[in-house]
Amino acid sequence: MNLSGLIGRASSICMIVAALGASLPGVSHAAAPEKVTIATEGAFPPFNQTEADGSFTGFEIDLGNAICKHAGLECTWVKQDFSGMIPALQAKKYDFIFSYMSINDERAKVGLFSIPYITDQFRFYGPKGSAVTLPAGLDGKSVGVLSGSTGERFIKEKWGDKVDVRGYDNLDQVNADLEAGRIDYGFNAQLPVSVFLASPEGAGYAWFGPSYSDPLLGRGAGAMFRKDETALRDKVNDAIRAVYADGTFKEIAARYFKPGVDVSAEPLWK
């Protein structure tokens, strides 16, 4: 946004004018879903990230665009912090969320989910050679998780009395504190962690224990809509099935994930 943009915003959408009811500023009509806006965090590689020119790239951006094409939607991406994503959906700032939102009952109460388009199991990771027997080895250890994530709920529910669970805003902070020795282990979905483990910084770290899939951990990630947007949701559902069926999903996944990593959510809805 440049200075003229700032001034433009100042004159176009002035909340005080709006408060006086003198004009109706930027109203996006949810009733015409041919043009839709989609929320992305824009800071969760390899799923979504922001480029220097302000554009978005990543697995979800490519997949989302493919889904939009199939559904005949004209999609625009907007950036939104993950923590404020559901309130802003309800405030109709955008039409749906496509930003690795894990499906769970709590969220399903306040919104409408598509079928999952991706799934990723959770696993512990920590310094190489830390031979941990689960769950006894967790006693008194500190574990970094994303705050508000399904992983945090799962670990608190299961081992909350033994483990010191530390919540972080993003995975990079978890990994940074792991490297700094402030926490003993991390517990997260495998895909984003696999990026860290493959990087030079992650060379001294490895997975341990089994992969966890549990109702508490969610049922894959789906697009999230407002409760009353059934028509748009159904359209997106059909499009997700279509990109799985015609091989587009596999092709996009191969661009971002290591061979052998299966992120297909098909078993969850087939």
């Binding site: 700032l6 915003r9 100042a10 959408i13 002035c14 909340m15 005080i16 709006a18 009811g21 109706l24 500023p25 930027g26 109203v27 996006s28 009509h29 949810a30 009733a31 405030a91 109709k92 700032k93 955008y94």
Partner: peptide, 19 residues
């Protein structure tokens, strides 16, 4: 939004993040 809903305005009333 609550204020404008009776007037048939259905959607996000964009309050500029800057202001």
């Amino acid at each position: 939004q609550a204020l404008l809903a009776p007037f048939g305005v259905d959607g996000f009333v964009a309050i500029d993040a800057f202001w």
